[in-house]
Design a protein around this nucleic acid. Structure first.
Length: 298
RNA sequence: GCGUCGGUGGUAGAGUGGUCAAUUACAACAGACUGUAAAUCUGUCGCCUUCGGGCUACGUAGGUUCAAAUCCUACCCGACGCA
């Protein structure tokens, strides 16, 4: 029997973090016969130290004593990658199980979640900053023909997915092909755990209201100050842009709009995963329903 | 009141007699996703369609023309200037 890991995922502003904490606390209570839970964040930006308000990072107080992993693990000057996320998360899960606790993965970055739950094996080619800089200057057509020479299969694969203009992908493919001779086929290694995926979503209108509220609070809590602070610490404008729209000369209107768009993109990703059990976060007693579900499964 | 400029699709904004259902951008909708993923990229985007085409559209109403978003007239609305 595989050990179980709870995954809480879904759209932004649906209350994932809150649910995760409550679940972790519930797992502490005797009836569950567990020693409690610990939370592993699955958010590509909350890993950075100092990106707090803009990323909607949970506060110490909100954690209510539940240990959180994969938050604040890297300096924002350095780039973090899925592979690092994978390694650190696998390690965290093992450690949590050693304590006899249940890991709760919680976040909205689908790519990161899949890397864990599907056991995606990425090619062992670290980012080559120099090469990337060089390639970024080239046109996508040029990059495509370069890749075509290096790895025809991958080049056409990218083309067939209508991504001829996707420089990011072309560059990464060239990077891998140059290091390994070709881009290996994607493979997955069945993880040693069983993942119970709980998805939270909100009906459009309610989502809009929540996002509005959340963004308003963000600005009140000092988003702009946070950006100034990051700049003082030596984060460039270019780097800030990479952290997303909240950090790129944000205005309230812009952030609200972009957040809603982002939430939709998140759903596009998650929709494909048929293992997710969905809950409407606007309904009452989500926790109760989730606990009931887990009673059967855990 | 007179004069000038302007009124274009959900929005901004091109077009200024035929190749215009109308460049483009944004929004909207759908999708992709091999170490940046809140990133990056793709498709659709007036209505109907048996996918050949058909219909209705560029402030309103007329007119000129084989043909008008584009020219003319009147009217309505807006901005600015002069009174």
């Amino acid at each position: 029997m595989k050990k179980k890991v709870i995954v809480i995922l879904g759209q932004t502003a649906t209350g994932k973090s809150d649910l995760a904490v409550k679940l972790a606390l519930r797992l502490c209570s005797g009836q569950a016969k567990k020693n409690g839970g610990e939370i592993i964040s699955a958010d590509s930006r909350q890993v950075y130290i100092g990106l707090d308000i803009g990323t909607g990072k949970i506060t110490k107080k909100e954690m209510r004593g539940i240990p959180h992993h994969l938050l604040d693990v890297v300096n924002p000057k350095n780039k973090f990658t899925v592979t690092e996320y994978q390694q650190k998360t696998i390690y965290a899960m093992t450690e949590i199980f050693k304590k006899g606790k249940t890991p709760i993965i919680c976040g909205g970055t689908g790519f990161y979640i899949d890397a864990i739950t599907k056991g995606t094996i990425f090619p062992e080619v670290p980012p080559n900053i120099k090469l990337r800089k060089l390639l970024e200057k080239k046109s996508s057509a040029k990059l495509f023909s370069m890749l075509l020479k290096l790895d025809k299969k991958r080049a056409n694969d990218i083309k067939n997915k209508n991504e001829i203009n996707n420089k990011v992908r072309l560059i990464r493919a060239i990077e891998i092909a140059r290091a390994l001779g070709e881009v290996p086929n994607i493979t997955e290694a069945t993880p040693p755990y069983e993942f119970i995926k709980i998805g939270l979503f909100l009906p459009d209108e309610i989502l809009k209201k929540k996002v509005n509220k959340r963004v308003t609070a963000m600005f009140q809590n000092g988003l702009l100050k946070e950006i100034i602070k990051l700049k003082k610490e030596g984060i460039s404008q270019k780097r800030l842009m990479e952290f997303g729209f909240e950090y790129d000369n944000p205005t309230k209107e812009k952030v609200i709009l972009e957040t809603i768009k982002y939430a939709k993109r998140q759903m596009t990703w998650f929709k494909r995963d048929k293992e997710i059990i969905w809950f409407d976060a606007s309904k009452s007693d989500i926790l109760g329903n989730v606990v009931n579900l887990l009673k059967i499964n855990i």
